[in-house]
């Protein structure tokens, strides 16, 4: 059991595990709405658009979290504004905001001299989280879970029947805007764990795996959160024992769970089909 307990003797591993689980749970829960609304591109876009915020924060000595948070929320508002009342298709709005902000980040990046910061931004540094980061991530996770629980029916109904929601008086655009801000919040946490490049995996993969096995949004969210938590722990242990990148290991653990779920479902459906087709 040494392989299980030995890493826990290191405070940075304990903090990293806690951060990975908290971020994973928040990302997976929000990610269910992302997957159900076919907005998978948005997580990737919001992660990439955090880049200018991160670079400005690094240049001016601000908190990287704060920089990413501001850039993410600004982008969420821009996307929401461009696509309100279907003035522009959502993928086009995301494409415009995403590439513009990322290009701005690249220009600003030339001003920075630190290669180390850049690597952490692109690939994450969960083992470098401090106590302040943990409080922030914990707060974000709590906020996201409370918001998702409080507005569950509005998020669900405006996703599966926006027309009915509008007739009931619900501002569907405002709900979508709120969801975009929630996504921006969890993306900031996810950048710390897996970096800009892999953030959308934490949003999409656990939710996609959960969607294969359940037909209820609430159950899907609980299951996706559990998958993300398990993948976070498994990824960090793999990173510790194999000496590989922690962010990539967490994402690959998510992918492995998705693959196993897919295979399990395909196997079950195949068995059902064979039983049905068997001559009587």
């Amino acid at each position: 059991m040494g392989w299980l307990t030995e890493p826990l003797t290191w405070p940075f591993i304990r903090k990293g595990l806690l951060a990975a689980v908290l971020v994973g749970v928040a990302c997976a829960a929000v990610g269910c709405h992302v997957v159900l609304r076919r907005m998978s591109l948005v997580g990737d876009a919001l992660a990439h658009t955090a880049l200018p915020g991160l670079v400005v924060a690094a240049l001016w000595g601000w908190s990287l979290f704060a920089g990413a948070l501001v850039a993410g929320v600004v982008t969420a508002l821009i996307i929401g504004w461009l696509t309100r009342r279907e003035a522009l298709r959502e993928d086009a709005g995301i494409g415009v905001a995403f590439t513009g902000m990322f290009a701005l980040g690249i220009l600003l990046l030339a001003e920075t001299r630190s290669q180390r910061d850049l690597t952490h931004i692109l690939f994450g540094n969960v083992l470098g989280v401090g106590a302040a980061d943990l409080w922030l991530v914990g707060g974000l996770t709590l906020l996201v879970i409370v918001a998702l629980a409080a507005f569950h029916k509005e998020l669900a109904v405006s996703a599966f029947d926006p027309g009915h929601a509008r007739v009931a008086g619900l501002r569907v655009d405002a709900v979508r805007q709120g969801l975009l801000i929630l996504i921006a919040l969890v993306v900031v946490g996810a950048i710390k764990v897996v970096g800009v490049v892999l953030t959308s995996a934490l949003l999409v993969t656990p939710a996609a795996a959960a969607s294969l096995v359940t037909t209820s949004v609430a159950r899907m969210m609980v299951l996706a959160a559990a998958i993300a938590a398990v993948a976070g722990v498994a990824g960090l242990y793999a990173s510790y024992h194999l000496g590989v990148s922690s962010g990539a290991a967490v994402v690959l653990a998510c992918t492995a769970i998705f693959g196993a779920t897919w295979a399990g479902r395909a196997g079950r459906e195949g068995a059902l089909r064979r039983r049905r087709d068997r001559p009587v």
């Binding site: 159900l36 599966f160 029947d161 009915h164 037909t215 209820s216 899907m220």
Partner: peptide
């Protein structure tokens, strides 16, 4: 013609 997403996980 409703805007219902019939693939949404709801019973």
């Amino acid at each position: 013609r409703s805007e219902v997403d019939w693939r949404f996980p709801v019973d």
